[in-house]
């Protein structure tokens, strides 16, 4: 990461083609969910040192939101998947 991201649609592309949105592990709560659930969704972050899931948008390419699984300490990228596919798999 940091230098190159392998976009599942476009191939290996440089970092500067992407915009980083943030934590991809969070699920948007139901509208009727508790105040706490909404607070946690919008404001609380696990912020792990190690593997994390992050939304990167390929703004300079296919414009897809990608879920980048990477290590916040070594900067190694473990996987990159399409955000919509990830969302469907994870029950959104």
């Amino acid at each position: 990461m940091a230098s190159l991201i392998t976009c599942p649609h476009c191939g290996v592309r440089p970092k500067e083609e992407f915009a980083i949105r943030g934590d991809a592990s969070l699920l948007r709560p139901a509208p009727t969910a508790s105040d706490e659930a909404w607070h946690d969704y919008v404001y609380v972050r696990a912020n792990p040192r190690g593997r994390t899931l992050e939304h990167w948008q390929h703004v300079g390419g296919c414009r897809r939101f990608l879920v980048v699984e990477r290590d916040t300490f070594t900067h190694e990228v473990h996987s990159v998947t399409d955000g919509a596919a990830f969302a469907r798999e994870n029950g959104r």
């Binding site: 949105r21 991809a24 939304h55 948008q57 399409d82 955000g83 919509a84 969302a87 469907r88 959104r92």
Partner: peptide, 8 residues
């Protein structure tokens, strides 16, 4: 983001 991630 909304279309791809929140409401695919």
């Amino acid at each position: 983001y909304c279309s791809q991630v929140l409401w695919p």
